[in-house]
Simulated scan of single mutants.
Amino acid sequence: MKYLILIATFFTTFAMAQNKKVTSSTINWWGYKVAKTAASSHTGTIDLKSGYFVVKGKSVTGGSFVFDMNSLTSTDLSGGTLEKFNGHLKNGDFFETEKFPLASYVITSISKSNNAAFPFMINGNLTVKGITKKVSFPAKLTLGKVLTLESDKFSFNRQDFNVEYQSAMKDVVIKNDIDMKINLTAN
């Protein structure tokens, strides 16, 4: 009897939570020189390799997302300048994608925020270059047949993840903040 109760509890708990796989994503980033203006910035995208949300009842309670760092690309440059800049981002100057091809984000909690446009705060752990730090961002969450997450633009400090240009003088002219905006759809 004890084992039947344990099995029933396991299946009840399992049935209450389900994973919804991310089926489409748009992830944009912005990097800036010290004068944080549109004219002194670079913009780009990064692809999501995989991801899912954990849903219990009518609430999103968690999730995990893996970013393909080799997909990191600039959208404000073209031709040879684009190739050179993308190589610069991916080599030892910044993200070292050969050594660290993946980054990840794991949702640890979701809370309400006072922002009417983005009423939720997504709290979690971002891992870049093998370093994990807490990063939170405001978002809209919609849960129906399809689950959507749309973040407001948010920042994280690249220095926290050892994403730094190897020349100290040149790193001084680059703003520490990297801005991101994330849109995910899951079924």
Rank of each mutant, 00 (worst) to 15 (best):
N125D: 09
T37E: 07
P101D: 07
N125W: 03
K49Q: 14
G51P: 01
A103E: 04
G51A: 07
N91W: 04
K129E: 03
T26D: 13
M121Q: 13
N123T: 11
K99W: 09
F65P: 06
L48G: 13
F53W: 09
K134F: 07
S41Y: 09
S40P: 01
S111K: 15
K84Y: 09
G31R: 04
K33V: 05
M121G: 12
S151Y: 11
M121C: 06
N19P: 09
T132R: 09
N114Y: 03
N91F: 02
A39C: 04
N70R: 10
S74M: 01
V106W: 11
T132W: 12
M69V: 04
I27K: 10
T75A: 07
S64C: 00
T75L: 10
L77M: 11
D152E: 14
T43M: 13
T23R: 05
V135W: 10
K58W: 12
T127M: 02
F85D: 05
I110M: 06
F85W: 11
T26L: 09
N123S: 14
I27D: 05
W30M: 03
S104Y: 08
F120N: 08
G144P: 04
F85L: 05
H42R: 02
K112Q: 11
N86R: 01
F67T: 08
L82I: 05
V54K: 06
S78C: 02
F100G: 01
S104D: 08
N115C: 08
G79W: 13
S25N: 01
S113C: 12
A35D: 15
K56V: 15
D68T: 02
F156Y: 09
L48E: 03
K33W: 07
K153I: 11
I46L: 15
N115L: 15
L126N: 06
T148L: 07
K90L: 03
V128G: 04
S78Q: 06
D47K: 14
L143Q: 02
L72K: 05
N86E: 07
G80W: 06
G51R: 10
K133V: 07
T37I: 00
K112C: 04
N86S: 10
K58L: 04
L141G: 12
